[in-house]
């Protein structure tokens, strides 16, 4: 038994690598879904109870309570679900932008250099600055933040997809398809899209952690969501006032929870990438 690698021993020894990857994705997705749905069902206007304000973590309030006596665990979950929602919106919009631009780049040389120029332009502006500007221009709030994050995060995916589409376009099967009399649109839809679909999917999921992090930071800086929406960024920036008074739990647990959610999305993205990798498709 000892010559088996570690991942083929113990509890999950009967599963193969593919099943294990699927299991990881399913469990992680379930956890995120539970956070998201339970957060959605929580009413944002939590009852305030000043008799239990500023309590450190206990079994009754595992994340402690804030200066208005609100339970920090419930606020954190609510904040996380808000972050996840913004992350979903932003990453879907940014991958749509990336896909469209990548296909536009494949039309002709002029379009290609235009898209490359656009990529360079957006890549040269610091993300956080761009997000702040777009967010303010669109009137802050959830909509502003989603748009801001979406319009600053399409760059990397576009670069990857553009290269991928270029490579597929020079392949022999695309050249042959043209000789069979198929149109460019048909080739884009039938040949190229199925080949880049997995890239788009993984790209969307890998934008997610960035989107959540940037949403929190821009909210923390005061350019994002408004204070009555209990996003993680708001919670963190409010806790700054009380941190000096020793209320460490106000920042520690929400921050940790945010980190965990980001990591969960990263795990899903990485596992999906492994699953979709064509060289390992038959494992």
């Amino acid at each position: 038994m000892s010559d088996l690698p570690w991942y083929n021993r113990g509890l999950f020894s009967s599963l193969n690598l593919r099943q294990k990857t699927l299991l990881t994705i399913a469990l992680t997705g379930l956890l995120l879904l539970v956070i998201f749905i339970s957060g959605m069902m929580i009413n944002a206007n939590l009852p305030t109870d000043f008799s239990i304000k500023m309590q450190p973590p206990s079994f009754e309030h595992i994340f402690g309570t804030d200066w208005m006596g609100r339970d920090m665990f419930i606020r954190t979950i609510k904040g996380l679900s808000l972050s996840i929602m913004i992350g979903i919106g932003a990453s879907i919009i940014s991958s749509i932008i990336a896909t469209i631009l990548a296909f536009v780049a494949s039309i002709n040389k002029f379009c290609d250099s235009f898209v490359s120029w656009l990529i360079d332009l957006f890549a040269s502006i610091p993300h956080i600055l761009l997000i702040m500007m777009i967010s303010i221009a669109l009137g802050k709030g959830a909509f502003g933040v989603i748009m801001a994050v979406a319009f600053s995060h399409w760059v990397n995916l576009t670069r990857v997809l553009r290269a991928e589409v270029l490579q597929i376009n020079t392949s022999e099967y695309v050249a042959l398809s043209k000789r069979f009399g198929k149109s460019k649109l048909w080739i884009a839809k039938e040949h190229i899209l199925p080949l880049v679909l997995s890239q788009i999917f993984v790209g969307t999921l890998l934008v997610f952690p960035h989107a959540i992090m940037h949403e929190s930071s821009v909210t923390f800086l005061g350019f994002g969501l408004s204070p009555h929406e209990p996003a993680i960024g708001i919670i963190l920036s409010e806790s700054m006032t009380y941190l000096a008074m020793g209320a460490w739990w106000l920042a520690f647990f929400p921050g940790l929870a945010l980190l965990i959610v980001v990591l969960l999305f990263d795990i899903i993205g990485d596992n999906l990438k492994r699953l979709f990798d064509p060289s390992q498709a038959n494992n």
């Binding site: 392949s171 022999e172 099967y173 042959l176 000789r179 069979f180 009399g181 040949h191 199925p194 080949l195 064509p278």
Partner: peptide, 22 residues
């Protein structure tokens, strides 16, 4: 140049002329 080309080339390496996801 448009439509089905009446002169068809058969390549040396067939695996390169087929979309791997089809």
């Amino acid at each position: 140049d448009r439509g089905f080309y009446p002169v068809q080339l058969i390549f040396q390496h067939p695996e390169k002329t087929m979309n791997p996801k089809w």
